[in-house]
């Protein structure tokens, strides 16, 4: 019934941005159904995935998140008609951008979890936590934050030449 709690060397920090009508309610259902999942996730409630700005995801990573989850209503279920449709395009584009600058997209999960899908919430959160745990800490943004000074390296021939002429 109560398996021995496994201890891990690394507990990832997972930040979840969810809409209040579907995914937040789905997470509530997981609670009322007494399902169990890793305690790493912190949930931020939004009225709609349409309200979720890509900058928040960036901010979460900069703030030390090892994984970010964005979750809302299934297409067609949006309480606000089309917020999730707009979000879908916005995040489709944003994840391509993050991927291009070198963020490992395994750390960024998007999902549709309805108010009836407590089980899916548990699955999504557990999967992301375990995946990110296996990947280890997200060091990229943290390392950037540690670099206090501008590190302008004179590494192109033009810059070198210009520098030597000063």
């Amino acid at each position: 019934m109560h398996p021995e709690k496994q201890t891990h060397d690394f507990e990832p920090k997972i930040i979840a941005f969810v809409c209040t009508w579907c995914t937040y309610a789905g997470a509530d259902l997981a609670g009322t159904s007494r399902m169990q999942y890793p305690a790493n996730v912190r949930v931020l409630k939004f009225p709609c995935t349409g309200r979720i700005d890509p900058v928040f995801i960036l901010k979460a990573f900069q703030q030390g998140a090892d994984g970010v989850l964005v979750s809302g209503c299934h297409p067609g279920d949006c309480h606000y008609i089309a917020g999730n449709f707009h979000a879908r395009r916005r995040f489709a584009a944003f994840r391509k951008l993050l991927e291009f600058v070198g963020v490992d997209l395994n750390r960024l999960q998007f999902s549709w979890v309805s108010a009836a899908e407590g089980g899916k919430w548990v699955e999504v959160v557990t999967d992301l936590t375990e995946k990110v745990r296996a990947m280890g800490p997200m060091t990229e943004f943290k390392e950037l934050a540690m670099e206090e000074q501008w590190s302008g390296a004179i590494n192109t021939p033009e810059l070198k030449e210009a520098y030597s002429q000063i």
Binding site: A27, R34, M35, A39
Partner: peptide, 17 residues
Amino acid sequence: REHCSWVHENREEATVK
């Protein structure tokens, strides 16, 4: 409650969360 005490068993983890 729904997002913490009901979904986690470990008292220490749940308290921190």
